Simulated assay, not measured.
Amino acid sequence: MTRPTLPSREEVLPFLDEIWNSRFVTNRGPVHLRFETALATYLDVPYVTVTANATLGCMLALRHLGVTGEVITPAFSFVATAHAASWVGADLVFADIDPETLSIDPQDVERRITPRTRAIFAVHCYANPCDTQALADIAKRHGLALIYDAAHCFAAKDEGGSLLRHGDLSVVSFHATKVFNTLEGGAIISHDLETKQALDRLCNYGIVDENNIESIGLNAKMSEMHAAVGLAQLPHVEHDIARRGQVVQRYWDRLKDMDGIRCVCPPDRPGRNNYAFPILVGPEYALSCMALYERLKAAGIHARRYFHPPLSQLPLYRDLPSADPRGLTCAIEASEQVLCLPLYPDLAPEDQVRILDVICTPWR
């Protein structure tokens, strides 16, 4: 399905020598600090707090903003989104998605606001931008926090710049499956120094100094080793995104006019980071989505049904009032039809042809 891009060992070794010589392996060491600075510059965002993973980043973002009560979040997302909100004690309210972008539907968000609503926890699904202006207007009008799970969005942009600049806080993932990875990791993007410093403290148990602990934090720090991989990886991102774009283009050229197949992420939108290539398998196609998944699997091709089932149908959450499928028709339909095809920079053209042949000749 995916294959992590890694820098060469030779590129990582100088950072490892520095770590070994200093014996500074965690707790915001010099490599960690350089990595945060390099990320802020590359992403063109004000402040970056790197974390051990994006799920912890989401939990700390919600915690920092004091989110309790109800949190509105899309029913179509990875489970980490819902789990992060649940871990901080929030009450989940699922909203439907826009049928075109598969990101959260602002109109449905506004319909679900109650006096107990405290935050909108939106997701740029597959790095397809949410309607950020509409969500910002809703959040301002109702006095709500606006947080973006931007796990998929490293280097993704809209007409105004980085997608990560939106909301009160945004969280991006550096997991091995993402466009940019530190093996495991993530980051919270903030807009001012005071917020960054507060988030830095929350990453380290809320410790201010040797004698003072001001808040209930977590051990969410990124190690020096992971930061070293990130620093070595960063110079390769543009090249990797371009190579991913070649893979996306080959998929698009062959599938864009196929009956029953809708390509969710067209390659021509400026600022796309080519994170994923999801297709929706409609009733006009020769096979059901599940049958195509099994056909690919039998051919040794591993696609993924990201995201199936929808969060609202998981046993953990399906009894929530907002999980009523009658109010989540787009999320449920997308979940039934979605299939993410293999995508990574060094996917060989001949392997991609084999994938496409299975999809384009399902009767064989």
Rank of each mutant, 00 (worst) to 15 (best):
R3V: 14
P7H: 12
R9Y: 07
I19E: 05
S22P: 07
P30W: 03
H32W: 06
E36N: 03
T37R: 12
P46A: 14
Y47R: 15
A54K: 08
M59Q: 11
M59D: 04
L62P: 04
E70M: 01
V71D: 05
A75I: 01
S77H: 06
V88H: 01
V88W: 03
V93F: 07
I97E: 07
L102N: 05
I113E: 13
V123H: 07
V123C: 12
H124T: 15
Y126P: 03
L144Y: 12
A145T: 10
I147E: 08
A151D: 10
G161Y: 12
S173K: 13
N181V: 14
G185N: 03
D192A: 13
T195M: 08
N212C: 11
I216Y: 03
G217S: 13
K221L: 13
A227K: 10
G230V: 14
L234Y: 09
G245A: 15
V247E: 11
R250V: 09
R250T: 14
Y251A: 12
L255E: 04
Y275S: 09
P278M: 06
P278W: 06
I279N: 00
Y293S: 07
D319R: 15
P321R: 14
A323R: 08
D346N: 12
L347Y: 05
V353T: 14
R354V: 09
D357F: 03
I359H: 08
P362F: 12
